[in-house]
C-alpha cells in the first residue's frame, strides 16, 4: 500500500466521534456527572481567550488586552467498536466565545444541569442552545435525593417551554447520569424526527 492508501486505512479504522454537551452554572455538578460515567478519568484542557471584558482571571502584560484561560472538562464513553461518545462540559465562566461554538457544533444534544438554589445560573446555557437550535434537556441535580420545589414550579422559574424535558438526576451516580444522557438523546431524536416529518 502506498502511504496515501495506508493513511486512508488508518483514518477509516479511527472511531467516529460524537458528543453531548454538559452545561450549567458553576458548581452544579457538570464535572461530577462526567466523572460518574466517563471511561477515562475526566480530563481538563484549556483555551486562551483574549477579551476586553471587565472581569478577568488573569491578565498578560499587553496593554489594552487581557487573556483569560478557559477550562473545559470532558470525558468519553465507548459506544461500540466504531463510535465514541464524548461529554464536554461547558467552561465554568459565564462568558461565551469560540469555545462554546466549538463545543456545541455538531453535538447530539445538551444536558443543562440545574441547582434549584441558583436556577438563574443555567439561563445563559438555555438561551444559547435555544438560539443555536441544539435540542436540550434540563436536569435538576438532587444532592440529597429530595426535590425541594415542585417540578412545575421549577419549570416556571426556568421559563422553558413544555416541549423541553425536565428531569431529576443524581450527578454522582453512573446509572442516573446514563439515564439523563438517554433523555437527551431521546429528546433530540424526537425533535429531529418531527423536523423530518414536517419536511424541514
Amino acid at each position: 500500500m502506498d502511504s496515501k492508501q495506508s493513511a486512508d486505512a488508518v483514518a477509516r479504522r479511527a472511531p467516529t466521534p460524537v458528543k453531548i454537551v454538559i452545561a450549567g452554572g458553576f458548581g452544579v455538578g457538570k464535572t461530577t456527572a462526567v466523572g460518574a460515567i466517563s471511561e477515562i478519568k475526566p480530563l481538563r484542557t484549556e483555551a486562551a481567550m483574549t477579551t476586553a471584558g471587565a472581569e478577568v482571571d488573569h491578565s498578560d502584560l499587553t496593554p489594552g488586552k487581557t487573556t483569560t484561560t478557559v477550562a473545559l472538562d470532558f470525558g468519553c464513553i465507548t459506544i461500540d467498536e466504531e463510535v465514541k461518545l464524548y461529554l464536554f462540559g461547558t467552561p465554568g465562566q459565564d462568558r461565551f466565545g469560540f469555545m462554546w461554538r466549538d463545543i456545541v457544533h455538531g453535538a447530539l444534544g445538551a444536558l443543562v444541569i440545574v441547582d434549584t438554589r441558583r436556577i438563574d445560573d443555567c439561563f445563559p446555557a438555555v438561551d444559547y442552545f435555544e438560539k443555536a437550535g441544539l435540542p436540550f434537556v434540563v436536569a435538576v441535580n438532587l444532592f440529597d435525593g429530595v426535590l425541594q420545589h415542585h417540578i412545575d414550579d421549577i419549570r416556571w422559574a426556568l421559563a422553558v417551554g413544555e416541549h423541553v424535558p425536565l428531569i431529576t438526576f443524581d450527578a454522582r451516580n453512573k446509572l442516573s447520569v446514563r439515564d439523563a444522557l438517554l433523555a437527551v438523546l431521546h429528546n433530540t431524536f424526537r425533535v429531529k424526527s418531527e423536523a423530518v416529518g414536517a419536511g424541514r
Binding site: A11, V18, K19, I77, V83, L85, L108, H186
Partner: peptide, 26 residues
C-alpha cells in the same frame, strides 16, 4: 491521520439510535 466528525451527525437519526443502544448496555 485525522478523522473529522461530520457536522450532520446531530441530525442523523440512525446515529442517535446507535448511541442510545450503546448507552443502554451500561
Amino acid at each position: 491521520v485525522v478523522r473529522r466528525p461530520s457536522a450532520a451527525l446531530g441530525q442523523d437519526l440512525g446515529m442517535i439510535e446507535r448511541v442510545i443502544r450503546g448507552l443502554e448496555t451500561i
